[in-house]
Design a protein around this nucleic acid. Structure first.
Length: 599
RNA sequence: GGCUCCGUAGCUUAAUGGAUAGAGCAUCUGACUACGGAUCAGAAGGUUAGAGGUUCGAGUCCUCUCGGAGUCACCA
């Protein structure tokens, strides 16, 4: 038309708002220049043209520069049949390409908390989504199993543990280790308080205080220095770290024992969250990596060496700073390790894309990391993505270990399942279900509430986590969506029981608005998955699920299914319900949320 | 201070530059002799922090101001 090819990107098609007639709308404004006509006139012409060319178009109308298209019922009939018979609806063919997704990546000195949960859910659902659009996904985590914090737990247990074990104390093993980490901080604080009153402490204060600085202020600022220079516990930690780096057998044995406890506990938590990994990396194996990259970078003149022997990269022309990549003493820093790990993974896994799920505190780090890899000419440099997410805060503000406001992952999981169970027993809708099956369904409901509450928020957004609202089972929640599935499940059981023939669905003639709304929503599913994959944004899937469930609840309320006027209407509505159930289960599966049969 | 991100109803939030900014919670009012009421319908609640600009059209893009967060270690 109009003798010009238009780029597909310029054609904007949206679903039509419910107060206009039509299923889809085309925005005409981009074409008025080419058409050299008023928007309405151009729309009328384009509408007539499409009407002529596309048999699936039943009718069209024009409102103020928007062309509304009505799709024929026969098209929708065909679509419904295809959808119901296609278990892979919404998924794309295999691309043969591999992508790595790194998430969780905890420290081994304390149990997982709410922040990890957001990270894990994002990483997991991102993996599922990428897999749905055809990638082979390698799920990894890099476990920070070494360093000062871990040594603190070790020193603490050695000094105060009296040989106790998680088994002897009947404490979940990662919590057991975490308790010793907390105990270390306490003991260290006590030691510091005592030291402040010694002659040594007083003389340090007298000689180093700033003019007019109170003792309390001075000692607050001086804490790190004290820990490194005067603390007995601090000395033990440094000694332990050195011995560890020296492969001292006794130290390594203790380290392995305590990390073993932590992994055992993590395993349980991951299992409760329904996640798993394909490949684990340990910082104890990777922290020395990257030195060959430093040589490589020097050879390529990406890096330069200073007089003291330290190696730097200058990124000031890209708006960043100069960064150290190798210390003067020849040891690696954090970014060196990440450079080395990236190259190792590429060689080992053959992925062309890498997704790092890491909180937005580290945005700058990843910008620098990616920029350096690009300048080094690494073949995978264009496939790097930092899935950055906002910190989780409580209504009272940021979680703080010292103030004991950290929400523990295991506690939270137990809470949501407990509340789902309480709510369910008040309702008494699950008679005739075995206790085991009931518990399994309630676990799904509780976890569904928690997971959906977290995943529905756009990753980038800082999240306010209200523990009370996170276990809500009504409104825009996981259980709301699960409930629509449970309703459909009930219908399908009856179809099974009564051997209802659904083939009459094809005879159904005029569709109701509520039915059309569901079909349009189902039709969007593949596009939503693609969009979520392109944007690395699982919240798009969550919003889609909610909208679909909402439409279904309205459909259920407004229209009779088993008491429909005709056999054709009944069969059609059952087929439609089945399709909705399938898509809901598929889409929620991408979020890591399972569907219960009863609730 | 430099750089980055954020500011939408009382609260939690949605909206590839498109139609009257869409939900949920909380508040108020209604709806089951029917397939499950963890549901549905309605009311009320907004100058999208503020001021300019670009555009046929701005919550969305640009500039400035205000407010908040993160980050700027030879830490990780």
């Amino acid at each position: 038309m109009y003798g010009e090819a238009t780029e597909p990107a310029k054609v904007q098609v949206n679903t039509t708002p419910s107060d206009f007639t039509g299923d889809y709308s085309v925005v005409i404004f981009p074409f008025v220049k080419v058409a050299k006509k008023a928007p309405d006139a151009a729309a009328a012409e384009i509408g007539a043209f499409i009407q002529e060319q596309v048999p699936e178009l039943r009718a069209h109308n024009v409102v103020k520069g928007f062309l509304n298209l009505e799709i024929s019922d026969t098209y929708w009939q065909q679509f419904l049949q295809n959808t119901v018979s296609n278990p892979d609806f919404g998924r794309q063919p295999r691309t043969g390409k591999k992508v790595m997704v790194e998430f969780s990546s905890p420290n081994t000195n304390k149990p997982l908390h709410l922040g990890h949960i957001r990270n894990i859910l994002l990483g997991w659902s991102c993996s599922r989504i990428l897999e749905a659009v055809g990638y082979e996904v390698v799920k990894t985590q890099i476990i920070n199993d070494r360093g000062v914090a871990i040594c603190k737990s070790m020193v603490s247990w050695r000094n105060f543990g009296e040989g106790k074990t998680p088994a002897s104390e009947e404490i979940k093993s990662d919590h057991f280790v975490g308790d010793y980490y907390v105990l270390f901080e306490q003991k260290s604080k006590e030691e510091y308080a005592q030291w402040q009153n010694t002659a040594e402490g007083q003389s340090v204060y007298a000689s180093k205080q700033k003019p007019g600085q109170s003792a309390a202020d001075f000692f607050k600022d001086y804490k790190n220095k004290w820990f490194n220079e005067y603390s007995q516990l601090g000395a033990e930690v440094r000694e332990t770290l050195l011995k560890w780096e020296d492969h001292d057998p006794e130290t390594i044995a203790l380290w392995e024992k305590m990390n073993g406890w932590v992994y055992e506990g993590f395993e349980k938590t991951y299992n409760d969250l329904g996640v798993s990994f394909d490949k684990l990396y340990y910082e104890s194996n990777t922290y020395l990596l990257g030195k060959d990259i430093v040589d490589d970078g020097l050879a390529k003149n990406v890096f330069f060496k200073k007089e003291d022997g330290s190696v730097w990269v200058d990124l000031t022309d890209a708006g960043y700073d100069q960064k150290v990549v190798l210390r003067a003493d020849g040891t690696s820093v954090y970014i060196t390790q990440d450079l080395g790990t990236a190259r190792m993974r590429y060689d080992e896994l053959g992925c062309e894309r890498f997704v790092y799920v890491v909180a937005d505190e580290q945005n700058y780090h990843f910008q620098v990391l990616f920029e350096v890899l690009k300048r080094l000419g690494e073949p995978y440099a264009d496939g790097l993505f930092h899935l950055s997410y906002g910190l989780v805060e409580l209504p009272t503000g940021r979680m703080k270990t010292r103030e004991g406001t950290v929400v523990d992952a295991d506690d939270l999981i137990a809470d949501v399942i407990r509340i789902a169970t309480e709510q369910s027993s008040e309702r008494g809708e699950t008679e005739g279900v075995s206790a085991a099956e009931k518990a399994e369904n309630l676990r799904k409901v509780g976890m569904g509430a928690l997971k959906f509450f977290i995943i529905k928020v756009h990753p980038k957004r800082k999240m306010i986590f209200n523990p009370e609202e996170s276990v809500d089972l009504q409104g825009q929640t996981g259980p709301y969506i699960q409930y629509s599935f449970v309703r459909i499940n009930g219908l399908m059981q009856r179809v099974e029981r009564e051997q209802i023939d659904l083939s009459k669905a094809a005879d159904y003639g005029h569709m109701e608005a509520q039915e059309k709304e569901l079909l349009v929503a189902l039709h969007e599913y593949p596009a939503v998955v693609l969009q979520a994959a392109a944007a690395y944004d699982p919240s798009l899937i969550a919003n889609f699920c909610y909208a679909l469930a909402k439409s279904y609840h309205r459909f259920w309320h407004d229209l009779s299914i088993f008491n429909a006027d005709t056999e054709a209407a009944k069969a059609f509505r059952l087929q439609l319900s089945r399709a909705v159930g399938q898509v809901l289960q598929s889409a929620m599966g991408l979020l890591g949320v399972e569907m219960p049969n009863r609730m």
